[in-house]
């Protein structure tokens, strides 16, 4: 059936999982008012730390723990800069990003001069359930990380919206003064949010290196950290929006991976894109002129079905372009940013 078969859905899910895990962490941290622009560096730290652990002990559980430790380490540095030293969070994030890339490359060249490859995480086939058509191979024949991601997202939803801690977290990001006056420790909450985000990004990074492909390469996260931040922004700092954004990015990425190997763009892509634009228009109820024009163009392409092919590198840029378009389309959602995002909290003792 061409592009959209089960293997496609599975690959979209595999792409989505680490981005979703990292984005959930970033969401928690941003709701507390700390924006880590260097998430990419934290992911890399997790990826490398997990890989390094694997080269020494060759145990996947320990590898993931190592990845989490690596992510925690860089997140702790971010916390130190943003919460304790109170420097500009954007600049601190840039430093974390540069440091993450530099350190992982340096340590990789020194400690693991000969690249090693490991087996990726085993898929766990659940008897009976995995025999269901479509849903079976998609949901019940996955590796543990996919399940862990689902659990983390569910838990995050519960904690953020249903517990005192979650409410305090939002209060800390909105009006830290009020939260402080109510007896909530702004510093403690921000630290825990930053560390949670570091642990999740570390685990996501470890999945990218040892969980999915089984090897570490310089700068291997390839912008997933930026996509995760874009998802938080596009999702208007809500978990539901975040899920939608990650789904869009992952599907685009899976599509481009699939299309790279195809000689020309199949007609069903235009149809699918048209449906997606239509859905977007219905949800947003804005930008009808531009959106309508795009929709008509896509429908025309689907009907005419011309032989178009794009070079591989331009396909590779698709998820980022789409993220930009999504951010531009959802411009007004910025009003819902936590009010104290990127603002250090200075307690006035007067």
């Amino acid at each position: 059936m061409g592009v959209f078969d089960i293997a496609f859905l599975v690959s979209a899910l595999t792409i989505a999982a680490p981005i979703l895990m990292a984005a959930t962490g970033e969401l928690i941290s941003q709701r507390a008012g700390v924006m880590n622009v260097g998430l990419e560096g934290v992911l890399l730290a997790g990826a490398f730390a997990g890989y390094l652990t694997m080269t020494r002990v060759e145990n996947q559980a320990l590898g993931f723990l190592g990845g989490i430790a690596g992510g925690l380490l860089l997140a702790a540095l971010m916390g130190l800069l943003a919460i304790e030293v109170k420097v500009d969070q954007i600049v601190a994030g840039i430093a974390i990003g540069v440091l993450g890339l530099g350190l992982t490359t340096f340590l990789d060249q020194h400690f693991v001069p000969e690249p090693q490859t490991f087996k990726p995480l085993p898929r766990i086939e659940i008897p009976l359930l995995s025999d269901i058509p479509v849903a079976g191979p998609l949901l019940f024949d996955q590796d543990l990380f996919i399940w862990a991601t689902l659990a983390v997202v569910g838990l995050a939803a519960l904690v953020m919206y249903r517990t005192t801690w979650g409410i305090n977290l939002a209060a800390t990001g909105e009006t830290p003064v009020a939260a402080d006056a109510a007896g909530v420790s702004v510093r403690g909450l921000r630290w825990s949010a930053v560390l949670v985000s570091g642990a999740l990004a570390g685990a996501a990074g470890a999945y990218i290196s040892i969980g999915d492909v089984g090897v570490f390469r310089e700068d291997m996260t390839g912008g997933r950290g930026y996509l995760a931040i874009a998802a938080v922004l596009f999702g208007a700092w809500r978990l539901r929006g975040l899920l939608a954004a990650v789904a869009i990015f992952a599907v685009t990425d899976a599509v481009q991976l699939r299309l790279q190997s195809m000689p020309a763009v199949p007609g069903e892509i235009w149809t699918a894109a048209a449906i997606a634009v239509l859905a977007g228009l219905i949800v947003m109820r804005r930008g009808l002129v531009v959106g309508g024009a795009v929709l008509i163009a896509l429908v025309a392409l689907a009907v005419v079905h011309p032989v178009v092919s794009l070079p591989a590198s331009l396909w590779l840029a698709m998820p980022y372009v789409l993220a930009l378009v999504a951010l531009a389309a959802g411009g007004a959602s910025r009003h819902r940013a936590p009010s104290a995002l990127t603002l250090p909290y200075v307690r006035s003792e007067a």
Binding site: V37, Y226, I229, S313, L314, Y320, V321, A332, R334
Partner: peptide, 23 residues
């Protein structure tokens, strides 16, 4: 005009630029 945080749009455009160069 769209209110997109310049830091995140510029990060994404960096990645796009690399692919343009590769092409």
């Amino acid at each position: 005009s769209r209110g997109v945080l310049e830091i995140i749009s510029s990060l994404l455009l960096n990645l796009v630029a690399l692919q343009v160069l590769a092409w």
